[in-house]
Amino acid sequence: MRYAQLRAFHHVAVAGGFSRAAEALHLTQPAVSDQVRQLEESYDILLFDRSRKQVRLTEAGEDLLRITLRMFEAENEAAEFLTEARSLRTGHLRIMADAPHHLLHILAAFRDRYPGIRISLSTGNSDQVVAALRAYEADVGVMGGMPEVSGLTGAVLDASPIVAFVARSSPLAARSDLALRDLSSLPLVLREEGSKTRAKLLAAAEAEGFSLSPAIEAEGREAVREIVAAGGGVGFVSMAEFGADARLRPIPLRPEAGLMMEEAVVCLDQRRDVRLIRAFMELAGVG
């Protein structure tokens, strides 16, 4: 087994194709294909399913990718240590958050301290954040509470109650509050499965002996907001995330519902000592 063969396999797996891997490695596509083929032949193993137009990892390929992700992460750490990136003068931090506003004070402090670091921010629900971290597509995640899964470390940033919200023109806008059971007779606009807000709401109803189901299911917080603003029903969000929107009115859920939404900042356990990630987590209060 040669380093070049493993590197070729890793880049094809991560990039999702031989052409893109060749571009990343500054090699020709035949050269990359040949290195992967030699690796497969040397160990009599099939790493990619080439029967379709799109290159797909076999089960063995997925197992090997989990190993090479750690291998090349360690290589990157070594490179950072041996270059100016070790002092965090350069680099790229990828963050995925379910609600970016929870990060604003941390981002400002991080930019002040490390102005040379490029930051990219994407959004997704809690399940998507966990998946992105595990796939090494994000370095840091912000999500609704600490996940009940192994392999992640982090800390809670803040907590606020979940509230309902409706269009200002809705008859419900005059309500001072809503009981959890009131929701069973209302048209609910809920986010996609994987949303912590949705999961908490449905679990609370189930604990009270009844069920809730969406009249409309929408992907993403902004989609829910627009549907509700147009009179499509009742949406839900943590009060900290409600923001300012003259079209909408928040309605508290009665205290007995006990619906609180925590926001946590997390990273993979095995990557917590990567310098860039550690610097961000320390600013977020994660030791």
Rank of each mutant, 00 (worst) to 15 (best):
E59L: 11
V156L: 13
N76K: 07
S238G: 10
K53V: 14
M146P: 08
R221L: 09
P30D: 07
A4P: 03
A279Y: 14
D112S: 09
A204E: 07
V130T: 13
G151C: 07
E137K: 12
T28R: 15
G209L: 11
V163L: 08
I216C: 04
S160I: 02
R2L: 13
Y3Q: 13
A204M: 03
L253I: 14
D245K: 06
A138D: 04
A264Q: 03
L202M: 03
G17Y: 09
L6V: 06
L88W: 10
A79Q: 12
A246Q: 15
A164G: 02
F110G: 01
L104E: 10
A159V: 12
N76V: 02
F81Q: 15
V286Q: 05
P187K: 06
I227Q: 01
T123A: 05
E208A: 13
H26W: 14
V55Y: 06
H105G: 10
D177I: 04
T90G: 10
I45T: 08
H11M: 07
A99I: 05
M1A: 13
V149M: 14
R271V: 09
L46W: 09
D49V: 10
I106Y: 15
L201V: 06
Q270L: 14
P147F: 07
V12F: 04
H102T: 03
V149D: 12
F280E: 00
R113W: 04
M1Q: 06
S126T: 10
A21K: 01
S122M: 11
L283D: 00
V130W: 05
Q5I: 00
M281D: 09
S122D: 12
L152I: 02
A204P: 12
A15C: 05
A246W: 13
A204N: 09
R66T: 09
F18P: 14
R134F: 05
I45L: 04
M143S: 05
T28N: 11
D127R: 13
L268T: 08
E73N: 09
D273E: 15
R278P: 00
D158Y: 08
F81K: 12
G235Q: 02
L268A: 11
R37E: 01
L202I: 00
A15V: 00
V265C: 03
V142Q: 13
Y43I: 05
R175M: 10
M239C: 08
E41A: 13
R89I: 01
H10W: 13
R275E: 14
L259I: 07
I216E: 10
T197E: 10
M143P: 05
E62R: 15
L57H: 04
A85F: 03
D269N: 11
E137W: 05
S160L: 09
D139P: 00
E148F: 04
E263I: 04
A199F: 12
F110P: 00
A99N: 14
V189I: 06
I45E: 02
R89K: 15
K53M: 15
M143C: 02
G16P: 06
M143E: 11
S19F: 04
A135H: 09
G232Y: 12
L188K: 05
R113K: 14
E41H: 00
P187M: 09
V274Y: 06
A79N: 07
